[in-house]
């Protein structure tokens, strides 16, 4: 079943088209990422799902029910806010129980449910504290518990890991993923971090200028970027100009080529080109070698076990033809 459906949804603020004719179908139980730079419309899409924004035009359905005009408090959708938005005047337990309280659930029952939700996010016994006494990572977990205790059909997460430090972020990524698997709830999360989107999501929508540039699995988006924007934004793909692509024997369009698809030297069935080494850097597991070929700068990942070529040296590089992906869009 389709959890969230967008049909030609637009949201304009004055002359700014924050969301521009977006079509989207998120399946039930899916872990869906909306990826893009700030101002790309991803957060507005999330707010349209939550009900904080209403579409200027288009149609939104949540589990088959029309969502436009339905206020946030009548949607079976909950949000984890970027700044967590915990109520400072309530204890942690009261924060988590808030959704049940306003729905009229009895005190004993809702406090028990809140305790269970806190245990689920690994914060048992923290109920008596105040939000101000918790660390950023703990507040994040409370915000998660406060949303999940309502058993939403869709959980929306707005840059959920943005404020956490690297180590905590990696840990939370795994926990979110396993939580989503065990609960079976549809998760929709917004991020500007491509690594986060690639590692967590079942499918990714890449946003730019209010439009979806590409929608696909992490592998598709990573390996076969459809547009130059996606190639640039998702990772560090080489964007080859049309002139260069033509000299390699392909069509007359921009094309993407991932650095790890390029090796030093030639081989059977591979396409090769010559380039002058302009930079090398050691990345731990690999070396990145940047060469200049036909006016384009092209990066290649080579194993760290092989010494990188010297600067200024002209080397032969090669790749398998299927790794080069022609892209849409004007040149």
């Amino acid at each position: 079943m389709t959890a969230v459906l967008f049909q030609q949804v637009s949201r304009h603020f004055g002359t700014v088209r924050a969301v521009d004719s977006v079509d989207l179908a998120i399946a039930e139980g899916e872990f869906f990422a909306m990826l893009g730079p700030s101002g790309s419309g991803k957060t507005t899409c999330l707010r349209l799902m939550a009900g904080f924004e209403q579409p200027t035009s288009g149609h939104i359905e949540i589990f088959g029910e029309t969502a436009e005009g339905v206020p946030p408090y009548r949607r079976n959708v909950n949000t984890v806010f970027q700044d967590y938005a915990l109520f400072p005047h309530l204890s942690i337990l009261e924060n988590v129980a808030y959704g049940l309280m306003v729905k009229g659930v009895g005190k004993a029952e809702r406090l028990k449910a809140a305790e269970e939700a806190l245990a689920m996010v690994k914060l048992p016994g923290y109920g008596a504290r105040r939000p101000g006494q918790l660390s950023g990572g703990q507040r994040q977990r409370v915000a998660l518990a406060r949303a999940l205790v309502n058993r939403p059909r869709v959980l929306l997460l707005d840059e959920p890991l943005g404020a956490l430090d690297l180590k905590l972020r990696e840990q939370m990524q795994e926990e979110l993923k396993s939580l989503q698997k065990s609960l079976g709830i549809t998760f929709v999360f917004v991020t500007h971090d491509q690594g986060e989107a690639l590692s967590m999501a079942d499918r990714i929508a890449v946003f730019s200028d209010g439009r979806i540039q590409q929608l696909g699995t992490p592998e598709e988006v990573y390996k076969k970027p459809k547009t130059r924007f996606v190639a640039d934004f998702v990772g560090s793909s080489n964007v080859l100009p049309p002139d260069f692509v033509r000299t390699l024997g392909f069509g007359d369009s921009y094309a993407s080529l991932r650095p790890e698809a390029i090796t030093l030297g030639d081989g059977l069935g591979r396409k090769n080109f010559a380039g002058r080494v302009v930079a090398t850097s050691f990345l731990g597991a690999a070396n990145r070698v940047t060469v200049e070929a036909a006016g384009a700068r092209i990066a290649a990942m080579t194993p760290a076990s092989i010494a990188p070529p010297a600067l200024g040296e002209t080397v032969t590089l090669s790749f398998l033809p299927e790794d080069l992906h022609p892209m849409d869009g004007a040149r």
Binding site: G51, P72, Y73, D83, Y98, V102
Partner: peptide
């Protein structure tokens, strides 16, 4: 966002 959070939680 406190007000939005409250609305989001059903109030």
């Amino acid at each position: 966002s406190l007000i939005e959070a409250s609305m989001d939680l059903g109030a």
